Simulated scan of single mutants.
Amino acid sequence: MMRLLISCLLAAAALAPGAPALEDTILVRDWLLAGPFPIGPREGITGLIEDPERFRPVPGETLRTALVAGGWTTWRETTADSAGWLETEYPDVDWPAHRDYYGIAGLMNAGYAWAEVSVPRCSRALAVTARCGFSINGRSYQANSYGDDWLVVPVLLDSGPNRILVSVSGFGDRRVRFLLVPPTAPVQVVAGDLTAPDLVTGTNESGPVLLGIPLLNTTTDYADSVHLRLWARAAETESFAVVADTILGRLPPLGVKNLPLAVRLPGTTGPVELALETELDGSAHADTVLIPVREENEARRETFRSALDNSCQYYAVLYPENYDPTRRYPVIFTLHGAGVEARGQASSYRPKDWAFVVAPTNRRPYGFDWQDWGRLDAVEVLDTILGRLP
């Protein structure tokens, strides 16, 4: 799946080398909306739209669905708010009745929102999304299934009209967001998606540590000779110190790379502020992020370099109560569910005096199902902690 996504992005970028950036934000207000349609848990498939590239709905067009009284729904006009949020508010649906009869699975549904926007020339942009998937002119993109405000997706807009199809799935009515914004630089740091270990109170020095720095190439060309700088500042100091200064290359067009980077951070009793800057061809992008400090008896994140793709990944660990490094301890290996982050999973346990509690994260802040990449991540975390913990 990941190789297919990268191949699609590269193919799209090859169609428009050197494409300029979108000139201004496009806030889509007018949509056509249809739904809800029944789906299986974690499925999200309706079979309704066979050819997204040529799909063009008509207001009032009827569609069959078992979730609406009478068995039919229509494509209807609706409007997003001034921030780009769209409420489904499906009419003639009795959600309490579905829940009472089928249970929580009876609320699982999918819907679609369709819109068309025009730009004067082929342009590259960033899609800001929340709780939905989407395609543009039939090209599918990796969207934001959750509500994180840091995730942006590089996209390519064709000259003239562009057809946007947003897929909406979940329990009952949904609230989703979609807008297009101009890139602020050729290569951007996605600071909100930084992978970093937690620092621990009482340590005199907290390095070297492994960071995963997500770099977003917003252009339709390979980005070579990207200058990356990092500065760190402890809570007790006023000035930043350089912790990394390196030149990178070969970032894929319209793509993201998780760069593993080992740095030495200052010892501290509070959080460490990390400043990051990328520069390419004279255009720079900067952002900051805080690396938190945890108490010794709290669950903490620890990072490692994955042998699967050389990326920086992490897991959460809760150390035993009255931990003795000379003792050998068993491990409670616990897997989180949807919408639960690994440290939150480990924090749901009280410290044991006889065991470690370890929670893998499953590749993203919230993860995939525990299959394929998820299963491999869990196995790799287990191998890692067996080599690190007594």
Rank of each mutant, 00 (worst) to 15 (best):
D245W: 00
V289S: 07
L230Y: 03
V263T: 03
A286K: 10
E296S: 15
Y314Q: 13
I247T: 15
A262P: 11
G249I: 04
A307L: 13
G267D: 12
T288A: 12
T219W: 01
P208W: 13
E236C: 05
V272H: 00
T278V: 11
T201P: 06
E295L: 15
P214A: 10
R305T: 14
I213D: 02
R301F: 14
L216K: 12
N310H: 13
I213G: 02
I291Q: 01
L199W: 13
H227R: 03
N310D: 15
T288W: 08
L265Y: 00
S283N: 11
I213P: 04
G207P: 03
L211I: 06
F240S: 14
L280C: 00
L265G: 05
E236D: 07
R305I: 01
A223L: 08
A244W: 10
V209M: 11
G282Q: 13
E298K: 05
L230W: 10
G212A: 11
G270F: 01
T237K: 11
G249W: 08
A232V: 00
G270E: 03
A235W: 10
E277R: 12
E302G: 04
Y222V: 15
V243D: 02
Y314M: 14
N310I: 09
N204T: 15
G267V: 03
C312I: 00
L276Y: 10
N258Q: 12
V242K: 13
P253Y: 07
E302Q: 13
P260M: 03
S283E: 14
D224W: 01
G202N: 13
V200P: 05
E238G: 15
P271L: 05
L308T: 09
D245Q: 06
L199D: 10
A299Y: 04
D309A: 01
E302D: 14
A286L: 07
H285V: 02
D309T: 10
E236P: 02
R250E: 15
G255D: 09
Y222D: 03
H285M: 08
E298S: 09
D309E: 03
P253W: 07
V243C: 03
L215H: 06
E238Q: 15
K257F: 14
E236G: 06
E205V: 14
G207T: 13
V200I: 14
D245S: 06
D224T: 12
A244T: 10
A262R: 15
L199Y: 13
T278W: 05
E296A: 15
L261Q: 07
E277C: 08
L248D: 02
Q313F: 13
V272K: 01
T220F: 05
T246A: 05
T219H: 05
V226M: 05
I291P: 03
T203I: 13
P214I: 05
N217I: 04
I213M: 08
A234W: 00
T218M: 02
